[in-house]
Design a protein around this nucleic acid. Structure first.
Length: 423
RNA sequence: GGAGAGAUGCCUGAGUGGCCGAUAGGGACAGUUUGCUAAACUGUUGUACCGGGAAACUGGUACCGAGGGUUCGAAUCCCUCUCUCUCCGCCA
């Protein structure tokens, strides 16, 4: 959620930057500013009335003590009359605030000045590319066929138990999952992130805090009986740790990492994009989250990008980093780097990580602030990134590392898998 | 799931209708004292919004789990909800 004070003081700037995200904010901003002005007038009037009512009430008390009953009664009547007007004003203030809020949550975050213009993924800017694209022998298989050839993942069994998009990992397939999770967590810890293990169901307030609610309700699984949501990413519980928190400046930056399963309904997807591991309803991910001082957040974004790059590199996967264009960015992000690895058998790039700076967009909702010395609390910046999401890493590893001998496990993973080959 | 107790500031905890934005203790911070440490003493110690001011600051309003009600006046009384704790039941 954008800060109202910022919109008020920088209307034109806001419009221009929203346009980079292909968001025409003209009408909504007009309404926001109008409601804001209304709100302030109403509050001014209400405060004046309440002030009067408070003064009168005090007088009544004093008069009663002095035994001046008649005078007290008189003021009581006066005060009672005020109540009508304060009630009306309170009601109108509440309505105005609700309307204002409803509009504010519909406005996406402003993209940082570095964000390229554009509408589609084709307009994303490739900022880095590394690793040789593997030349596979004839007859190379896509990962879903490798998965069944070596009995690593059983998609049909998952359908039986739950439905499509809930695979069952078996044997070395399961062990590979566990190895990747451990490896990623270990690297996160080494990079100074505190490992946390959060709940994977969250309440509404948490969903709102990171921006999944109210709009993206349909993307999350909802446990109606208890009104809880299955998390689509660890970002939600981990970032919400800091909801309604005022930190000390010296506590920044806060670095957390965590592994969780993630659940996404992925309503509306279909076709070859969802084949095999490409898109699942349940998947595993290690997430890194930072809460940063506003002056440092972009340096930290680069640091996080480096961390993710080091993981991909260590796994020996050819990858590229994209700076997302305005049209392809998420609602809440100010700047996003996407990591894609090349999947040789499918001959396409698969997104395996997304690293973003949200600036104050989340913290404004979360009321996540920090205090510098005796100063006023100010909003912190939040950042997060996948480090990494497993399924597509697994897909790329299986496909790129296949040969007649089987599938070669990257060296860094061997201590965690306990085997060098899947064959 | 059943029965009971409770929710107050950074923490503990007092406060049963006006003198309460809120006693006290602890913690933290600042100052004084001290050769250092410790101790002692003094002071400070919330957030949001509206207004004034260049600013330090200052006037007002709201906030004692959340929402409603009674009243001239609510932390305090009433109702609803949420959560926590204790005991019992069930249980990895």
């Amino acid at each position: 959620m954008l800060q109202l004070s910022y919109i008020r003081d920088n209307k034109e700037e806001t419009l221009t930057r929203l346009a980079v995200k292909n968001f025409d904010g003209k009408a909504i901003l007009e309404d926001v500013l109008k409601l804001d002005a209304e709100r302030r007038t109403t509050q001014g009037e209400l405060d004046a009335l309440l002030n009067e009512a408070n003064t009168l009430a005090k007088q009544v008390g004093d008069l009663f003590k002095q035994g001046k009953k008649d005078e007290a009664e008189e003021i009581k009547n006066k005060s009672g009359a005020l109540k009508e007007s304060t009630k009306k004003l309170e009601e109108s203030l509440r309505t105005t605030e609700a309307e204002l809020n409803k509009l504010l949550v519909q406005i996406p975050n402003l993209p940082s000045p570095k964000v390229p213009k554009g509408k589609t993924p084709q307009d994303n800017e490739v900022v880095h590319k590394e690793g040789e694209l593997p030349q596979l022998a004839k007859g190379a298989l896509p990962h879903w066929e490798l998965a069944s050839k070596y009995d690593l993942i059983d998609f049909e069994l998952g359908v039986k138990l739950t439905g499509a998009g809930f695979p069952v990992y078996k044997g070395k397939g399961a062990r590979l999952q566990r190895a990747l999770i451990n490896y990623f967590l270990e690297q996160g810890t080494k990079a100074g992130y505190l490992e946390v293990q959060p709940p994977i169901l969250v309440n509404e307030a948490s969903g709102f805090g990171t921006g999944q609610l109210p709009d993206k309700e349909g993307q999350m699984y909802h446990v109606g009986i208890d009104n809880l949501y299955l998390i689509p990413t660890a970002e939600v519980p981990v970032t919400n740790i800091y909801r309604d928190v005022i930190l000390k400046a010296e506590e920044l930056p806060i670095k957390n990492c965590g592994y969780t399963p993630c659940f996404r309904r992925e309503a509306g997807s279909y076709g070859k994009d969802v084949r095999g591991l490409n898109r699942l309803h349940q998947f595993d991910k290690v997430e890194i989250v930072q809460v940063a001082h506003p002056d440092k957040s972009y340096a930290i974004l680069e640091e996080m990008r480096e961390h993710v790059a080091s993981l991909v590199k260590a796994l020996g996967l050819p990858y590229r980093i994209l700076r997302l264009c305005g049209g392809d960015m998420s609602f809440a992000s100010a700047l996003t780097y996407d990591f894609e690895v090349y999947s040789a058998a499918q001959e396409k790039w698969l997104e395996i990580s997304s690293v973003s700076n949200f600036e104050t967009f989340q913290s404004n909702r979360l009321k996540l602030r920090f205090k510098d010395g005796g100063g006023k609390p100010q909003l912190a910046h939040t950042l997060n990134g996948s480090a990494l999401a497993l399924p597509r890493v697994v897909a790329a590893l299986l496909e790129n590392n296949q040969s007649e001998k089987g599938i070669k496990i990257p060296e860094v993973l061997v201590p965690y898998t306990g085997f060098e080959w899947i064959s």
